[in-house]
């Protein structure tokens, strides 16, 4: 089964790399050339087409990582732990991109780098949770204990995602009222670019998760070999 998995990774990963690159280039064309200019903020509003899809992609990654963690706790299959850590680590990359692009958008539009509003804080908390998750993975050395503890953190981390999504509905925030699924008037072309960029970033996420999974498989192999060396030595 492990053999079949690694063969599959080798076939699909290059295809995903090419597809991701093509989709990202097409998305950049749509963002910088095709989509109409927003009348209030001007050109800087185009950060929106990367800021929001990065957040959505990180949520997909964390939710997938959390689901894999739930399944790991039920089945104790190490490959699900590999999937969970891969999704969570790649998700953290997109979460950081979301925070950084948000800061570069906030500075010219709000005049400040960071607004301590509910959405910003809950998004920052999400990043902190998964940074903690990765630190925890480094600090617990026993593999099955590490997988169980990290699965619990991964499941807890998912709870923050609906809070981020609902933050500008539940509380008064610096972030604008919802423009997607919230009755806001988003131009049709803006919606198309937003959806296209999300698909492009999800393809990049899929590629990164597969690459990270290869690493997780190698880490387990190295840990197994180390145990054998210790047992024989």
């Amino acid at each position: 089964m492990a053999e079949a998995d690694s063969t599959q990774v080798d076939k699909l990963t290059p295809v995903l790399a090419v597809a991701g690159a093509v989709l990202v280039v097409a998305a950049l064309y749509l963002i910088f050339v095709w989509v109409p200019m927003e009348s209030t903020m001007g050109v800087v509003q185009r950060i929106f087409y990367f800021h929001v899809p990065s957040a959505a992609t990180s949520w997909v990654a964390f939710l997938t990582g959390g689901m894999a963690a739930v399944r790991y706790l039920i089945s104790r299959d190490g490959r699900l732990d590999d999937l969970s850590v891969s999704c969570n680590e790649a998700g953290l990359v997109f979460c950081i991109v979301n925070l950084v692009t948000g800061m570069f958008w906030a500075k010219p539009v709000w005049g400040i780098w960071w607004a301590w509003d509910a959405r910003g804080q809950s998004a920052l908390l999400l990043a902190v949770i998964y940074v903690g998750y990765l630190i925890l993975r480094q600090s617990v050395t026993e593999p099955s204990q590490r997988a169980v503890v990290c699965a619990v953190v991964s499941i807890c981390g998912m709870v923050d995602i609906p809070i981020i999504y609902m933050a500008n509905r539940w509380w008064r925030t610096q972030h604008p009222a919802p423009v997607i699924f919230g009755g806001g008037g988003l131009d049709a072309r803006m919606g198309i670019v937003l959806a296209f960029t999300t698909v492009a970033l999800l393809t990049v996420l899929w590629y990164l998760v597969r690459q990270r999974r290869k690493l997780a498989v190698m880490q387990r192999e190295a840990e197994g070999l180390r145990r054998m060396v210790h047992a024989l030595g």
Binding site: G42, V43, V44, R46, I47, F50, V97, F104, P108
Partner: peptide
Amino acid sequence: ENLKWLWYAFSAA
């Protein structure tokens, strides 16, 4: 000025 921030954001990403 706005273009500068757009450039920074995409570069950082």
